[in-house]
Simulated scan of single mutants.
Amino acid sequence: MTIGEAARASGVSAKMIRYYEETGLIPAAGRTGSGYRTYGPKEVQILRFVRRARDLGFPMEKVAELLALWRDRDRASADVRHLAEAQIAALDRRIREMQEMQATLSHLVRSCAGDDRPDCPILDDLGGHPGGPARTA
């Protein structure tokens, strides 16, 4: 199948397929005599694997590790579990950070009168100068 067909079948855009090939995450596709990439069911399965891992938030280097483990029939499931547990911890950290950002922004919004006056604690905070406009030297 063509790259467009592989993209539709896997849910990975053609642009990302090319990127994954360029970075070595997935093997380079076969080529027709005229240079077009060709993909089969095995490649689509790999692309689906990558997409699912990315959907779960795994960074590219961890996706590569997961792919290597997936291909290694002698792997220990403990190795896979360890990667998944580390990803859970990373997601927990990101969730906490986002909750902190939300709390800070909510506080700033409550502090803003939202009227016709130019005073704006949101902009003051973003400018790094609570209580007044940024000063330039």
Rank of each mutant, 00 (worst) to 15 (best):
A89K: 07
T104H: 14
R48N: 00
M98F: 13
A76G: 03
P59Y: 03
A89T: 07
K42W: 13
A64I: 02
R110W: 13
V44R: 04
R94A: 01
D72Q: 13
D55M: 03
A103Q: 10
T32H: 04
A53M: 01
Q99T: 11
R54P: 01
I88E: 12
D115Y: 04
T23H: 05
L56T: 06
E65N: 02
I26V: 13
H107K: 10
G35W: 06
R94N: 04
D79K: 14
G114I: 11
E61H: 12
P27M: 04
R73H: 08
L67S: 06
S13F: 11
R117N: 08
A53E: 00
A28T: 06
A9Y: 05
S10K: 09
K62C: 00
V12C: 02
S77T: 06
G57H: 00
V80G: 09
E85W: 14
H107R: 12
E61R: 07
W70D: 02
S111G: 14
A76V: 03
D119V: 11
R75M: 03
I88Q: 13
R81T: 11
C112H: 04
L108G: 09
W70T: 02
G35M: 04
H82Y: 10
D74S: 08
R75Y: 06
R54F: 03
E21R: 15
Y36N: 01
A103V: 05
Q99N: 15
D116V: 14
L69C: 11
G30L: 13
M98A: 13
G24K: 03
L108C: 15
R110K: 14
G24V: 01
R73E: 07
D79N: 15
E65D: 02
V12I: 03
R31L: 15
E43A: 13
G40A: 06
D92E: 15
A76P: 00
A53K: 00
V50Y: 01
R81E: 13
R37T: 03
S13G: 15
C120P: 08
G24C: 04
G30A: 12
V63Y: 03
A28I: 05
I17Q: 11
E21N: 14
S77F: 11
L105K: 10
E22D: 11
P27K: 07
P41D: 05
R48P: 00
D115W: 05
D55I: 01
T38F: 04
A90H: 01
A90G: 02
E65I: 00
L25T: 05
A28D: 05
K15N: 09
S34I: 11
I17C: 13
E85L: 15
M98T: 13
L47V: 02
L67C: 05
E97N: 15
R96Y: 12
V44W: 06
P118F: 11
A78S: 12
V63A: 00
D116M: 12
S10Y: 11
R31T: 09
L91F: 10
H107M: 10
F49G: 00
L66E: 02
Q99W: 15
Q99V: 13
S13D: 08
W70N: 04
S77I: 13
Y39G: 01
L67T: 05
T38P: 03
V80E: 05
K42P: 05
P41F: 02
R96E: 10
R31H: 15
A78F: 14
M101W: 13
L67I: 14
I46R: 04
G114M: 12
E97K: 09
